[in-house]
Amino acid sequence: MSDNHNHTQDDQELGWFERVENHRLLILLTVLICVGFGAADFFYHKHPHFSAEEIPAFYGLFGFAAFFFVVLAGAQLRKLIMRPEDYYDDQEEAQDAE
């Protein structure tokens, strides 16, 4: 299935997305966009359905917190439900052998 060909000189070179200076650029861009849309909150007329929406940059803060929570909670969930890749194979093989 795999169509890998031998690594050439080109392949060894770092791609645009792997250069550290470009990482910095992307992060800076993300921060600037966040600041921009956060500030934009003050420049349009809101029609809130819920009182929480009146908090400045409510959606941004909510998105940041929700994302953080999802990832950290997921990491905790691992302790509970993560098993080796062959977890079910063991048992199914044992069953077949019977």
Binding site: C34, Y59, F64
Partner: peptide, 20 residues
């Protein structure tokens, strides 16, 4: 309003990913 709030939600979440 809709564009700004949605972009806030998504881009701040992207920022959270960067931080993590």
């Amino acid at each position: 309003g809709h564009i700004i709030t949605q972009m806030q939600l998504l881009m701040f979440a992207v920022l959270a990913f960067v931080v993590l």
